[in-house]
Design a protein around this nucleic acid. Sequence first.
RNA 1: GGCGAGGUUCCCGAGUGGUCAAAGGGGGCAGACUGUAAAUCUGUUGGCGGAUGCCUUCGGUGGUUCAAAUCCACCCCUCGCCA
Length: 411
Amino acid sequence: METLQSLIDRSLVYQMTNEEKLNELLKADPLSFYIGFDATASSLHLGHLVPLMIASHLQRAGHKPHILIGGATALVGDPSGRSTERSLESRDTIDQWAVSLKTQMKRFLDFNDESANGALLLNNADWLNKLNYINFLRDIGKHFSVNRMLTAESVKQRLETGLSFLEFNYMLLQSYDFLHLFRDKNCILQVGGADQWGNIVAGIDLIRRKESSEVYGFTCPLVTTSTGEKMSKSQPGGAIWLDPDLTSPYQYYQFWINVDDRDAAYFMKLYTYLPVNEIAEYEKLTGADTRRTKEKLAFEATAIAHGFEEAKKAQNAAKALFSGKGNQQNVPSTEVPLSRINEGISAIDLFTETGLCPSRGEVKRLGKQGGLYIQDERVSSPEERITEDMLDNNSLLLRAGKKRYHRINFV
RNA sequence: GGCGAGGUUCCCGAGUGGUCAAAGGGGGCAGACUGUAAAUCUGUUGGCGGAUGCCUUCGGUGGUUCAAAUCCACCCCUCGCCA
């Protein structure tokens, strides 16, 4: 199996150095590669998924992943793809983040250190924090041409709005990471997002100069939706996180099932392990049948991120709510004491307490617009009390807008 | 360091003493139409147990005033030119 070609077939490759050689290497013996993630939050989000999937594919092909948490570089902030400087986080915070990131990555990668190609999690703070400024300048800095750095796309853009010296150094640090991992772990391949191209190439150059060795790199596309949105933090309804406490598996499933028709098959290639020939079958579906593609996509993607069981639950809940099949057991729910009905509880209370609406004002607004439902009945006056005869089996199904459901179980 | 421009609600961007919770656009949300899609049209878009009311918001802190996003002082930050 041609590993590189299969990645290309899945649209996972954007740019690469020395394709021919890289292809040979990936076909031959297992190699060590690295992918960096800057710790900028306690959870990964959709924007991190493509690099993770690539790492996973490569590991399945027998190669050894080195996952680099940018504990030190996060303190500097990569100017690539950003218009403003990142906020600086404390060392402690970033260390905590690294721990939770690893938990999430375990769904995608095998971190078993018994196996030869078990993934390794590294933190560049371990070597970058030890650097001596003067030595670094002499050993590493002298290999970098400022003239050339200024032509890097990431820097060029920031020249418009401003770039501090701190961030300007990011390229050197990332290059040093590559050098370090080459020396220490024999990493000969770096993979990153398209915005990392400049940093990756800089690292390759550095290794050639310092070690007279050829190493390789490729980038994956920065995925955008058909409407031009980045797959990163800002999605309708807020960020989609991999942490189930931030984005529940149900919400995660819903995100995928709601993607634009035009993206469905494309996302299947990127975000599932389904073989491309199977995806080709789904691509043939048109019109309303595209929903079948999205159902598959949603199920597979959720299973990867949250496990088969959670995916099954999310799927059941979706079926119960949107096509009336199956039971509503797995619909997100909250328990409320039955006594509160006698004390007087209104729709406003329920909708805010379940988090379906962030404020009472929002409930009233939605009510005015006809977007509030209890048991599929439109709620015209959300201030009115809930009465016991409205309950069905001691439970109420709330709905805000077309798609957001929540169940209340009175106990 | 000098000079100039600027920091406004999720984003961009108007506003230069009361009529400002703050134009307009984007985005979001809702309704209609649909297929939990897209496109389109319409509405909506700080919070508050229901309010010609209160609270929070216009970089920060103080001040002037019956009244400040708007005026004054100091400070912080960003950009540009010069050094």
